[in-house]
Design a protein around this nucleic acid. Sequence first.
RNA 1: GGGGCUGUCGGCUAGUUUGGUCUAGGCUUGUAGACUUGGGCUCUAUAGACCCCGGUUCAAAUCCGGGCAGCCCCA
Length: 480
Amino acid sequence: MSDTGITVSKKDNFSEWYVEVVQKSCLADYAPIKGCIIFREQSYAIWEKIQELFNKKIKSSGHKNVYFPMFIPESFLKKEAEHFEGFVPEVAWVTQGGETILEEKLAIRPTSETIIYSTFAKWIRSWRDLPIKINQWCNVVRWETKATKPFLRTREFLWQEGHTAHKTSEEAKKEVFDILDEYKDIMEKFLAIPVLVGIKTDNEKFAGALYTTTLEALMPDGKALQMGTSHNLGQNFAKVFNIEYVGEDKKNHKVWQTSWGISTRLIGALIMVHGDDRGLVVPPQVASVQVVIVPITYKKGDSSAIIEKSKEILENLEKNNISAVLDDRKEYTPGWKFHEWELKGIPIRIEIGPRDLKQNQITLARRDTYQKTNAKIEDTVQATKSLLDEIQENLYVTAKERLLEKITKVDDYEAFKDTLKTKGGFLKAAWCGKSSCEEKIKAETGATIRLKPFMKESSTDKCILCNEESEEIVYFARSY
RNA sequence: GGGGCUGUCGGCUAGUUUGGUCUAGGCUUGUAGACUUGGGCUCUAUAGACCCCGGUUCAAAUCCGGGCAGCCCCA
């Protein structure tokens, strides 16, 4: 085993393992600026896949892609007080252009509500202008001071931010939950990462929102990761930016708004949830290369028949919409290639050598379980397709089992602290609804309320901390 | 937000405690070639580093200060 491969095991040293996979699988490299990474070919390919999937979804429901400037005048950002308070600690500012000191400094967008909504105010006049449903793919900057980690917490990252304006509260609410469903679909069906959905507490909600819905996944080290959020902004921004329309009733009304986003953080989750001691594992649905064909050839003896057959298989796969590559490099041994493609997480490897050819078969090796099987050459497409489905399913099911295993109901504070320390994961506990309890638990244990479930679970439990009448059962966890 | 650790060829590692005959590796990687090929094979030749700035000193990889970067723990 050489150092081109992964040298620490995921189980023994998760943090080191993550850093190795990120770099050695060509996902990212560190940039010369603290907290910034270079998105390399492997991660960008996954990002493009996510873009493709999400664009398809939102376009079919009438959203349009647009692009707004990355600079936001300070006065805009300040208009919604809670929003400004929430973001100002991590805003990067432009104060100078060339030699000229700017009269008003410009924020590099940490999120674009303010600049977009100031424009909405110009665009919206009549009820006929509504709804407006736009989305943009862009970068945002949040000047993190805490320890940064590739993909999970970086100063600059890529995301999409959707922004909508509606006539009614009901319509806005529907939008929030429709998007939440689309996010869940992408995470579970495509990234094969199971998530819990719910509502954030007031402490954790988006600054300026009425409420925030969230999707939370669990990482193998027992910490929760926020995968995406969809906010109901109510009329908070409509009021400060004066976004009004004349309704059919000829009266002025303020619009109801939503905003929502997912980011390149999803890539970090994918690495952590599926990766193993051989490197990255990419779920077939988001793999830009689903199959690699490695011919087993010999210098002595004629290998042209094997290469010919490999090319034939490649064409056949591509014809059937399976994305495949043929690795016929002569300078590397088959074993070397196996390791390299495993490091990069390609779901299926097809081996074809003299023995296979003689028996008119191929060998299929799956990335998730390392299992090898054989198939007749004429059955290649079918065998590959069903194996891809199986891998996709297996990755999801395995992750789901791990998630469920790490959801623990706790009844008292000692058990809470103990479980958090020894097992991690999500802790279901009763909570009285007071911010003071939430904050005290955070200060004492590091765990925060990740979400309140949509369906309130009936319970007679008392608050885990203060023992007063509890409002509901919520999910706590330590998080990224 | 608080604390700790670390920075040496492309990668990994030793040397720092006690400044000097210190630069080093029989490891890996790159390059050229040979050999091999159903799981990172082997051999030959060759290339390549003390994070940055400043200070102490006759002398700094080593000590001191600052910066930058990375990791870990706690909140």
